[in-house]
Simulated assay, not measured.
Amino acid sequence: MLDIKITKTTAPKEKPKGNLGFGRIFTDHMFVMDYTQGVGWHDPRIVPYQDLTLSPAAMVFHYGQEMFEGLKAYKGDDGANYLFRPDMNAKRTNDTNDRLCIPRVPEEDYVQAVKAIVSVDQDWIPTAPGTSLYIRPFIIATEPFLGVDVSQTFQFIIILSPSGAYYESGLEPVGIWIEDDYVRAVRGGMGFAKTGGNYAASLAAQVKAHDDGYSQVLWLDGVERKYIEEVGAMNIFFKIDGKVVTPMLNGSILPGITRNSVLQLCRDWGLPTEERKISVEELIQAQKEGKLEEVFGTGTAAVISPVGKLRYKDDVMVIGNGEIGPLSQKLYDTVTGIQLGRLEDKFGWRVRVD
């Protein structure tokens, strides 16, 4: 168990009012822990939120040896504070760390650190419908060295941001641009890892999609350019002729925690589910035959994001008359209901923070 030293701020900030937006407001404190080769992780502490001081030669700036995660804290209907499956974030952190040669963080220490910083800043957890306290753990390489090698020092940091809906439109179905030029990841690369390079690689297509009025980019596989992979900020699901279908995890797709939760819920409800390859041609054909019933994304930030329109080259597919489908609504209500304590947590996903 970590012995976390806590230093409280002497100048607390005013809590935000009104529209929170997403990821632009930060709480009073942050968690920091250092790593030194030969010593391991050490000096865990919670300190006032502040800027970092790093050498311009810090390896994170030059070789991108860094990772990040995302999860949320919620104020339950009973007034208690809850996390949603933080052990899964801890596990995914270490999967990413292994790929990037970053030292693993013991999962119990990771969850303890998240709980500790949320507990200190629990007064920042918003209570308005659709809001939450977004939690951003990340690890950066800090050794000052201009050589392509594994850093000898790292920092593990957790910051918190009270946030509203990821999309300003909330649950209103979004438009998705199926990218046919750029690629994001290939098997054997880092597509399954939660690292900044994956997201930097997505920006050019994201700008192109936004310029044409679409909210997100849906990526195709990087080899054949015909199989659906994932959306920039979420995994993707299709309800085709009564079956819930999502791309299988193949090394280039992020293993989403909300994705995993949705699959468990659908199977628990007796819905047929498939994790497999899905070609864009299959989607177009299913739409022409009236079998493409619903499309939705899943992710920590948006939870469930209904898709009302898919664009691929000259084809624009309108899904469900551009309205949210019944399964998308049920999944959103169920996941958020469990997170807020309104529904039975039969899977043991909700974790209380005292």
Rank of each mutant, 00 (worst) to 15 (best):
P137R: 05
A286N: 11
R45D: 05
V244K: 06
I284F: 07
P44D: 01
R136K: 13
M88N: 14
M30N: 03
I176P: 01
V120Q: 06
F296E: 07
R311P: 08
P103A: 04
Q285C: 11
Q264Y: 10
W124D: 06
I25E: 00
M317D: 04
V316H: 02
D77Y: 10
K115V: 02
Y227W: 13
G270W: 03
D315R: 12
R350G: 10
G325W: 01
T93Q: 12
R184T: 00
Q206H: 06
M248W: 09
K313E: 15
Y182R: 14
A302V: 12
I338D: 10
N94C: 03
P247G: 05
K75I: 02
L271V: 12
K194I: 05
L2K: 09
Y167G: 03
Y182E: 14
N198R: 10
V174H: 03
G170S: 14
K330P: 09
G189P: 08
K91Y: 13
G325R: 02
P56G: 01
T53R: 14
P12S: 05
L54R: 02
G251F: 00
I278V: 15
D221G: 02
K239L: 14
F68S: 05
L54T: 08
E108N: 15
R342D: 09
Y63S: 08
N94K: 00
D34K: 12
L20G: 02
I158Y: 05
D211T: 11
S169Q: 13
L160I: 05
D212Q: 15
D123P: 03
L54H: 01
A185P: 01
M88T: 11
E229R: 13
V353A: 07
